[in-house]
Amino acid sequence: MRKAIAVMKKDFNEIKKNFQVFGVMIILPVIFGVVYPLILYFIIPSLVLEDPAALNMIINMFSGFFLLMAISIPVVVAADSFAGEKERKTIEALLAAPISDAELFLGKVLVSFLPAVILTYISAIIYCSLVNIALGYFLLPNSAFWFQMALVPLFALLGIEITVFISVRVKGFREAQQLAGVIIIPVLGIVMLNAFNISVFVAPWNYILLISIGISDIALYSLAVKKFGRENIISKI
């Protein structure tokens, strides 16, 4: 575990100096956590009176964006962490070091997973607070919102695992990021359904979604660890 944390810290120090990645980590929380709530803050008072249905749709849609955030941040970070090392030709010395495949994989997962989950939760707290203040009463988090928050770590992990699969096979960061970006499309679908009040965040769909994503995470994790073998990585340098 000590070495996994060393990998995580090293990667995070690198990411902080890489605007391409760190920019995404900052911009997404600012948009979802601050810009959108501020928009709501200003339009809510008029919508409350004029069009409560539209207000409900907008709040639902913006709430769903946190799932997009939970999956987008790890895709970018993991693409840099895995494929980026290959692209920058730094991976070989790391693979020659006395660290097990599992520790190395865990370190790389943590650096993608932790910022995504922490930033998503912080943005969600800001979002809920601003919406409640604008409404003048306590709306969020409601049960659907809580449910989405429960899905955040599961989606983050899913994003990382898919990015690992892709990163092992491609040579560079951009290629990995673009291919892994496709995973956002089904999440976007869920968000849009939610916006139009066809919510998958109510029983029984919420439980089906939770269980199926959880099972996918577990299955993909063991596959990703296998695929993350040193030989698979070095063969694509």
């Binding site: 070495k3 060393a6 100096k17 730094t90 006395p98 660290i99």
Partner: peptide, 30 residues
């Protein structure tokens, strides 16, 4: 892996980090 040192064809250095950060990271791994 613990008993060998390797200088690969590419220097394999983390260029955004300092020499101290690079060596400290590998010091932890070793």
């Amino acid at each position: 892996r613990s008993m060998v040192g390797i200088l690969t064809e590419n220097p394999c250095l983390y260029e955004r980090l300092t020499p101290v950060a690079n060596l400290d990271f590998f010091g932890k791994l070793y």
